[in-house]
Design a protein around this nucleic acid. Structure first.
Length: 452
RNA sequence: GCGGAAUUGGUGAAGUGGUUAACACGCCGGAUUGUGGCUCCGGUAUGCAUGGGUUCGAUCCCCAUAUUUCGCCCCA
């Protein structure tokens, strides 16, 4: 048997419906914030990721899906979404668009050659946004609030926002120097990885999990103390806007992020959920004011974030948040004889074309089997065709909830079904979803009634 | 890249170095000659991840591979 590749997943059935629902919520929220959908290729020139993410990062140095195509081009399956979006922004000269800043969102698969574990796959789905062309701290807060509001709308509790500022180039350089001076005398106490990090990317030493408890680590200089006045002011403004937006957050100076393009605001959104494991960062992002120019575009500020949908689904599951999943039919058309079947074929099409969700029998089951099948499909009405009724221009239709059966004139079938379904929905939840006992219904918390 | 655990039918699983590998659910059929969901009866084929090895004999023991899963590193 040929099986799926390591770290990949087939998503289907109820799970696929849940994914679609979540994507739908995300889209609705993005629309309200006036972000526009962008779809970029899944593969790009390898150089794009080397230049943007950074040569020394783990993502680039050991997790890239690289290959050469038949034209001998160096290709990489995208490990994250920002690089491709920025490439597209530059290539399509979006910096010349009348409407600025450019606000974009994407939702697609990313690829990282990693060892899979809970909450981490080789093929992962990320939703993310990018705002390019504004350096206003207000937009930093908006991006964070957008992410938080998506989690809120989905009903997720225990969301923790950690923010930090890496400052501008000057602040970062000063801090970098201070860090190297601080750790140099203690280099032998650090783990092997950190010794290398201190050389190549000193900031990364800070979020080392191995050396976390060391004394040198605890009294290491803080980034916040090395921000120059402008960076400091900017960071405080971001916090002011977050306060105004009623977003709870914690300033955490150890957040440095694994991708090199970040500066100023960086943030991570954690799920503080029992049993979630160590892969508890649901979303993260930050500002990247140097990235557009680094990739050959004009000097343009930008900020963005990404969230892993797989982890989000995991969190929703752990918190036992039930998503509304449409799993019922309006009607199931039953038949036995060939003439009944012929009529069924046309009736089913007519009903479908008039907006009803209708199913029928395809596998030669007897009437008994068709009743069972209709129940499995959670069909609200059963249409039981009978040659004798058809000769008299009538159709038997049974309400599967009340068990009432009625003979209806063929010409009135659409009207009858429409009316019956309307009254059907009055005394039951109109979302059409199944609710297990004890679970709250979130069906009406959809995008038409979201509260921020 | 490193380490631990696992893999038995459509599904959940029990089990043993030796004739037909439990049990449950599901599904199909019958009782009910065109009205199901309850009940009862019957059926569900070549099925113990793959490849080697030990053995008279392996689903069981050993090795390798694959996949799954949980950690480390790192990331969403």
């Amino acid at each position: 048997m040929i099986t799926k590749q390591k770290g990949c997943h087939d998503i289907y059935g109820v799970e696929a419906k849940k994914w679609n629902y979540v994507s739908h919520i995300i889209e609705a929220v993005c629309e309200r914030y006036n972000y526009n959908f962008i779809r970029t290729p899944i593969f790009e020139a390898s150089e794009l990721f080397h230049r943007s993410i950074g040569e020394e990062t783990d993502v680039v140095s050991k997790e890239m899906y690289d290959f050469k195509d038949k034209g001998d081009r160096e290709i990489t399956l995208r490990p994250e979404g920002t690089a491709g979006v920025i490439r597209s922004y530059i290539e399509n000269k979006m910096y010349g668009d009348a409407i600025q800043p450019v606000k974009l969102y994407y939702n697609g698969t990313m690829y990282r050659y990693e060892r899979p574990q809970s909450g981490r796959d080789r093929e992962l789905t990320q939703f993310g946004v990018e705002v390019i062309g504004s350096d206003d701290p207000m937009i930093d807060a908006e991006v964070i609030s957008l992410a938080v509001n998506i989690y809120r709308i989905l009903g997720l509790k225990g969301i923790k926002v950690n923010i930090n500022s890496l400052g501008d180039q000057e602040s970062r350089d000063n801090y970098r120097k201070a860090l190297v001076e601080h750790f140099k005398p203690h280099i032998n106490e650090l783990c092997e990885d950190c010794k290398v990090r201190l050389e190549k990317n000193p900031l990364r030493v800070l979020d080392c999990k191995v050396d976390h408890e060391l004394e040198v680590m605890k009294n290491a200089p803080l980034m916040t103390d090395y921000l120059n006045d402008e960076s400091k002011k900017r960071f405080l403004e971001v916090q002011k806007y977050l306060d105004l937006l009623d977003i709870e957050y914690v300033v955490n100076p150890t957040i440095v992020r694994g991708l090199d393009y970040y500066n100023h605001t960086v943030f991570e959104i954690e799920a503080d959920i029992e049993g979630f494991g160590s892969q508890n960062v649901l979303g993260a992002g930050g500002r990247y004011n140097g990235l557009v120019s680094e990739l050959g575009g004009p000097e343009t500020p930008g900020i963005g974030f990404a969230m892993g949908l797989g982890r989000l689904m995991l969190a929703l599951e752990k918190e036992q948040i039930e998503l509304p999943v449409e799993d019922s039919m309006d009607a199931f058309v039953m038949y036995v004889s060939d003439t009944e079947k012929d009529y069924a074929v046309t009736l089913v099409q007519e009903l479908r074309m008039n907006g009803f969700k209708v199913e029928t029998e395809y596998t030669g089951r007897g009437l008994k089997g068709q009743f069972k099948q209709a129940d499995r499909l959670n069909s609200k009405f059963l249409i039981i065709l009978n040659d004798k009724d058809l000769k008299e221009n009538q159709i038997k239709i049974k309400n599967n909830q009340t068990k009432e059966e009625k003979l209806v004139e063929i010409d009135y079938i659409l009207y009858y079904l429409d009316e019956q379904l309307a009254s059907f929905e009055e005394d039951s939840c109109d979302c059409g979803c199944h609710h297990e006992d004890g679970h709250e219904c979130h069906c009406h918390d959809d995008e038409d009634s979201i509260s921020f």
